[in-house]
Amino acid sequence: MKGTLLFNALREAIDEEMYRDPLVCVMGEDVGQYGGSYKVTKDLYEKYGEFRVLDTPIAENSFTGMAVGAAMTGLRPIVEGMNMGFLLLAFNQISNNMGMLRYTSGGNFTIPTVVRGPGGVGRQLGAEHSQRLEAYFHAVPGIKIVACSTPTNAKGLMKAAIRDNNPVLFFEHVLLYNLTEELPKGDYVCALDQADLVKQGSDITILTYSRMRHHCLKAVELLEGKGIEVELIDLISLKPFDMETISKSIRKTHRVIIVEECMKTGGIAAELMSLITENCFDDLDSPPVRLSSQDIPTPYNGNLENLTIIQPHQIVDAAEKIINNGGVD
């Protein structure tokens, strides 16, 4: 097969950074001998040994806190959440320690850590394994939040996250690991704080991230067939938002839809809408619209699961209504 699978792109990034800097290490459940549940750390245990690729007991709270202590004393740990949902158990360490400690210590310590793993709604994994924790962690000060969406940005962002001196929550999507793409040659990094202008257009801006980028791409194709030119932006950075790129696009199109997999209440779009209202109000010809998941635990049943998250046709409908009627209602 031509190209690189997304999980292998992540693996390459971690491998290259571990080779480059002996202080970079990985810790988490089944990251070592097993190679990671989604094989993101495959073969690294053999290559770097048991201390640099540390298989931990099932103790999210404590091994995440251990990463904080290791980072405070000079290491650059990458913590794998086998499923990002499990990190609810480490909420205290991520919030109180990873996020706040540099500030409360008056700059005494830095916490160069990456917390990464699969999030999002998969295929019938049930409510607990289908969470979108980026929204839950959004209010925590002092952490950067990024979401990768293609093999190319997965690798470049992972390398940037590892090199960053701040704690970074790095969201992968459980359904994107098998995407394939030819990667740029050589050592490259992607900026953690820059949105990706996926496609230029003049009629309407769509802001999205992670797996929804691909739903949006399908919608963009359908809308093009109807003569509607979409400007598609992958946010990449969920905290802080790249408001420069976002504002520039809205100044051009005067219309915006945010498409997310988060639940509507307290979601990423909720915060982004507020910022757009604060910063771009005069540039808008119609109210900003958000398309979010239902405010419910993700159901197991496949049909119900599909109804829970946004589908491409809903994006098409919303865009058409905004352009033709000035709003979705």
């Binding site: 002996p22 201390f51 640099r52 404590s62 290791a70 405070m72 004393t73 205290n92």
Partner: peptide, 25 residues
């Protein structure tokens, strides 16, 4: 550390660094 128990993993991390420096580096 103001919350009960949260310092223990952090301390463990410092001890891990010590071991890491000896074993891995």
């Amino acid at each position: 550390y103001a919350f009960i128990g949260e310092g223990i993993p952090v301390a463990l991390g410092a001890a891990f660094t010590s071991k890491y420096r000896r074993e891995a580096l």
